[in-house]
C-alpha cells in the first residue's frame, strides 16, 4: 500500500454474520502488525441477531481525525438489507464487493464503481465446512482485490487470535484470496 492519508472500508450484513469481527481482525492486523493508524467503529440496533449491521475501518499513514467512514473506498456487503441501508455514499470509482448469492445490484451506482461478485457464504459452507467462516473468506477477498492489507499479516493475526481454529480459518482466508483473484481476472 502506498502512503495514504485516509482509506475507508465499510462492511455491511445482518447481525450474526460476523461483520464486526471481520472489521476487528482487519483493524488488529493493520494496527498491530502493519503499524498503520486505524480506527474501527460499528453501528447496530438493539437486536442480538438479524437487523442491518455495519462495521467500518478508517486506515491511513497519518493519525485519523474523524473516526467514522464518510465516503467508503470499499463497501463489502453480505445482505440485501445492508446493501439498501448503506450503499449510499460509496465513492466514485470505488469498489463494491458483494456476496453474489445474497445480494443483487439494485438502483444506480456512483460513476466508475467496480463490482466484484464472490460466493463467500457458499465457499465457507461447502469448501471450509463452516458458514461461520464467511467473514474470513471475505477478508481474503478484500486482501486480493484491494491490497490494503497483506496476506501474511492476516495469516499471522488469525494464528494469534484463533489458535484452536487456525486451520479452518487459514483455509477460509486462502479460499477467499483465490476467489478474490478470480473476481479480479473476471473484471
Amino acid at each position: 500500500m502506498n502512503l495514504v492519508s485516509r482509506y475507508e472500508i465499510r462492511i455491511g450484513g445482518f447481525g450474526g454474520q460476523g461483520v464486526v469481527t471481520m472489521a476487528v481482525v482487519l483493524g488488529e492486523t493493520l494496527s498491530l502488525i502493519e503499524k498503520k493508524f486505524v480506527v474501527q467503529t460499528q453501528s447496530y440496533g438493539p437486536e442480538a441477531r438479524g437487523g442491518a449491521s455495519k462495521s467500518e475501518i478508517v486506515v491511513g499513514d497519518v493519525e485519523i481525525d474523524y473516526p467514522k467512514v464518510m465516503e467508503p473506498d470499499v463497501f463489502i456487503v453480505l445482505s440485501r438489507a445492508a446493501y439498501l441501508a448503506y450503499i449510499k455514499g460509496l465513492k466514485e470509482n470505488g469498489i463494491l464487493i458483494i456476496d453474489e448469492d445474497l445480494v443483487e445490484i439494485e438502483g444506480d451506482l456512483p460513476d466508475g464503481v467496480k463490482v466484484y461478485k464472490v460466493p463467500a457464504t457458499r465457499i465457507a459452507e461447502q469448501e471450509v465446512g463452516n458458514k461461520q467462516a464467511t467473514n474470513v473468506v471475505m477478508l481474503g477477498v478484500l486482501c486480493a482485490i484491494t491490497k490494503i492489507v497483506t496476506n501474511e499479516g492476516l495469516q499471522q493475526r488469525i494464528e494469534e487470535r484463533w489458535p484452536r481454529f487456525k486451520e479452518s480459518n487459514l483455509k477460509a482466508l486462502e479460499l477467499g484470496l483465490k476467489a478474490g483473484e478470480a473476481a479480479l481476472v473476471g473484471q
Binding site: 476487528v24 483493524g27 498491530l32 493508524f37 480506527v39 474501527q40 467503529t41 473516526p67
Partner: peptide, 9 residues
C-alpha cells in the same frame, strides 16, 4: 458512545 465503542491502538 463513539469514543466508548471505537477501537484504536
Amino acid at each position: 458512545e463513539t469514543v466508548g465503542h471505537m477501537r484504536e491502538r
